[in-house]
Amino acid sequence: MKKFLLLVGIAVEIFVSAQDIKKDSVVVDTVKHWSVLGKNTLMFNQAAFSNWVGGGANNVGWLAGIDYNLTYEKDKDLWENIIIMGYGQNNTKGVGTRKTQDVLNISTNYGRQFSKSWYISSGASLQSQFSAGYEDGNNPEAKKISNFMAPGYFNMGLGVTYRPDDNLTVTLRPVNGRWTFVLDTDLQKAGNYGLKADGDSSLLQFGFLGNAVYKVKLMENVNLTNTASVFSNYLDHPERLVLAYGAVLNLKINKYISSNITVDVLYDHNQIKKTQLKQTLGIGLAYTLNNGVKRSDRKDNQWWIKK
């Protein structure tokens, strides 16, 4: 009997110890520092006419794009990387093929937290396009006005980042270098994109850069992402602000199909002394990758929510 009780006591002790080990392992495994949020899209549009009194031209188009956000969060470190690429074409009978979308945008920003939601940060970004653009609705027979890295914009600077949650990020860089590249020799003319002389391939500016991203969930499966930026050159006409605003309205139909409406507004005195506007609408295949749990998603870090 004594031996039996001794064996039961040992078994109970082992069981309790195993439960403690299991509990500790669960706590450790819930911490993830890398998160990946990505969206891949492929959209098509088509129209056909036959003896249609209202008129119209047969056309077919496509648009492909990726939008990825890779974020590392650990202790006081925050490192966010954004990759946005998109390209699209439309072929209309009697007109030919025209480019409808062309964007290349890569950025990285590292911050070290010094207060709640505030980070000392530094970062860089690259903006350009993939292929040539022309006047007269991207007509290849018209005058060429842009190309890959013509212009291309590279920013690098130091400042502060405010990020209370995943829906709002504001970065202010009072120290920022902005390089404009024009690598197409046909476009290296004085005045093009601010170039000072014929044959110049780049222009360096030094000033203030501000960026903001604000995401809003309007309703279930309907999300709006707003982006805005402003740049002022300290050394030459600081009043000539480079202003940009973009909005992406995403309407998710199901897991694999969604619709996007985009609006982009830009004013850059060195490009053209007019406000530029671009709008697109598309519906098609979309696949979203969401892998990882951001630190700011965890309840024990959401200090701004009343518990």
Rank of each mutant, 00 (worst) to 15 (best):
residue 258 S to G: 08
residue 256 Y to M: 04
residue 224 L to E: 04
residue 225 T to A: 11
residue 248 V to S: 13
residue 220 E to V: 08
residue 223 N to S: 09
residue 209 L to D: 00
residue 236 D to Q: 15
residue 233 N to Q: 09
residue 216 V to A: 04
residue 226 N to Y: 10
residue 263 V to A: 14
residue 228 A to Y: 09
residue 250 N to I: 02
residue 232 S to P: 03
residue 239 E to I: 11
residue 244 A to I: 13
residue 260 N to L: 11
residue 207 G to L: 04
residue 261 I to T: 12
residue 234 Y to S: 14
residue 230 V to F: 06
residue 207 G to C: 06
residue 240 R to Y: 06
residue 245 Y to E: 14
residue 243 L to P: 00
residue 222 V to D: 07
residue 237 H to A: 13
residue 240 R to A: 05
residue 255 K to D: 12
residue 212 A to F: 04
residue 224 L to M: 09
residue 231 F to M: 05
residue 235 L to R: 15
residue 250 N to R: 08
residue 248 V to W: 07
residue 234 Y to T: 15
residue 246 G to T: 14
residue 227 T to N: 10
residue 247 A to T: 14
residue 252 K to T: 12
residue 258 S to C: 05
residue 247 A to L: 14
residue 219 M to C: 02
residue 226 N to F: 09
residue 250 N to Q: 09
residue 259 S to Y: 00
residue 250 N to G: 04
residue 235 L to M: 15
residue 222 V to M: 10
residue 269 H to L: 06
residue 254 N to M: 11
residue 251 L to G: 10
residue 223 N to F: 03
residue 223 N to R: 05
residue 268 D to P: 00
residue 210 G to N: 11
residue 213 V to T: 15
residue 207 G to A: 09
residue 251 L to A: 14
residue 220 E to N: 13
residue 210 G to D: 12
residue 268 D to I: 01
residue 209 L to M: 03
residue 225 T to F: 08
residue 270 N to Y: 06
residue 220 E to H: 12
residue 265 V to M: 08
residue 268 D to N: 05
residue 242 V to D: 08
residue 255 K to Y: 08
residue 221 N to A: 03
residue 260 N to H: 13
residue 222 V to T: 12
residue 213 V to R: 08
residue 253 I to S: 07
residue 253 I to R: 04
residue 214 Y to W: 12
residue 233 N to W: 01
residue 209 L to I: 03
residue 212 A to S: 11
residue 209 L to F: 00
residue 208 F to L: 13
residue 226 N to Q: 12
residue 268 D to T: 03
residue 240 R to S: 06
residue 222 V to W: 03
residue 226 N to K: 07
residue 265 V to Y: 01
residue 262 T to A: 13
